[in-house]
Nucleic acid binder design. Structure first.
Ligand SMILES: [Mn+2]
Ligand SMILES: [Mn+2]
Ligand SMILES: [Mn+2]
Ligand SMILES: [Mn+2]
Lengths: 219, 219
DNA sequence: TTTATTTTTTAGGTTTGTCTAAAAATAAAT
DNA sequence: ATTTATTTTTAGACAAACCTAAAAAATAAA
């Protein structure tokens, strides 16, 4: 089956929101896609008629098996292109999302598979998110939220939980990026803020909010 | 200014048809874009109002200076992506056109310029057509139509005058491609057909129609 | 368990890009 | 110089994807 760019963006949005909530609300999609709820309802009817989602009025939406396959295909393209942009074209990891948002809609599967081979079948994108393989399989991530790491254990940043430019700006400012090694030195109960020691001995303070979107793995 | 995919396809089509005819007719665009003439008229009005073309009802259309700049930008992207597909992803030169037709509409200029650098600033695409540089300048092609070449002079194929799959299939069958070296051994007045000797001593017969879309340069 | 608030859907429009059928303009042929 | 044929434009419709405003359903509060 063939999908329009708009349909693909909805399908991907449902997929992402389902990571948080088993069933996805009209308003959540409206917020994610910057589209009025009435427009979301229209599209949900259309996607239901194409059997991409299950949807009962007023009771939210889930991807069908077919829908999940389609979503993984789009996510695969998005993340492969991000990897390409960073690894081959020297983009910063904080400036690839917008472009990948367009590139993910190029339809040729031959292109995707050849790109995958050209890149050496990478398992994770520049933000640490897993890249589905050509059969839609995701590599298991043995990463944990930074909040769950004991003090003084050396870990490495492997993923961030959002692509917002505000977040990426903050990380850049703090000198944190994919692969940065650090230890949690202290957690303050008052506001949940953390003090980290990064590899080059620098002390960095981060908020609870920031810590909650950082994922790490032991080194 | 920002353009839709449909607008960009029209702008590029006008550009290409202007290589043949100073002024482009509604029907020519209709044929090129596989769209009914009435739809073409609608779009021409729109592009005129955006000052991309000059257009007087019933008297055809030309690109404005602005329009030419836009067209060269699209052609640049199209040909750079074709080069990428063949040179980096191992596509055949006869299977890249469709994909490039989509990729040419990705908007980021940063992407195009970084891609250009990554590819080593190529001057010609896999079909031998010149790639506009970031300022829209085209490399001069010192190539001539095969029909204009004297007998027994060794030349090399540098371009084909069409991307039709029928043409590309025929060339593949005859063992002719970009860079193939050959000499014209004979021209038959009866039907305008040519006998060529290719580098590996093989004799190949081609029609006047085929010869007219092959471009070569002396080696 | 009513009442109030929030969420979602329906109803009715708009823009973009396409179409068919018919009319008008231009070009070609007698 | 008419008539005929071709090309192009106009008129009116349609599907996709969005919108606002109002109605209806679900949820939360009193
Ligand atoms: Mn997208
Ligand atoms: Mn990513
Ligand atoms: Mn195109
Ligand atoms: Mn080409």
């Amino acid at each position: 089956m063939i999908f329009t760019v708009a349909e693909e963006n909805y399908i991907k949005a449902v997929y992402h929101l389902q990571q948080e909530q088993e069933t996805v609300s009209t308003n959540a999609l409206s917020a994610e896609l910057q589209t009025r709820p009435a427009s979301v309802t229209d599209m949900l009817k259309k996607l239901k008629s194409k059997r991409i989602i299950s949807y009962e009025p007023y009771h939210g939406v889930k991807l069908s098996n077919e829908g999940r396959k389609v979503a993984l295909g789009i996510v695969r393209k998005h993340r492969l292109w991000e990897y390409f942009l960073v690894d081959k074209l020297q983009f910063g990891w904080d400036e690839v999302h917008e472009v990948a948002e367009e590139l993910e809609h190029i339809s040729s599967t031959k292109l995707v598979d050849k790109l995958d081979a050209f890149l050496g079948y990478p398992k994770f994108d520049p933000h640490g998110d897993p890249i589905p393989d050509s059969k839609g399989r995701l590599a298991a991530q043995q990463q944990e939220p930074l909040a769950a790491i004991p003090l003084n254990k050396t870990v490495e940043i492997t993923a961030v939980g959002s692509q917002s430019s505000e977040l990426l700006e903050l990380l850049k400012h703090k000198g944190l990026q994919m692969g940065t090694r650090l230890e949690v030195k202290k957690i303050f109960d008052f506001d949940g803020s953390l003090e980290l020691k990064s590899k080059n001995q620098q002390i960095v303070t981060i908020s609870r909010d920031l810590a909650s979107v950082l994922f790490v793995k032991p080194v």
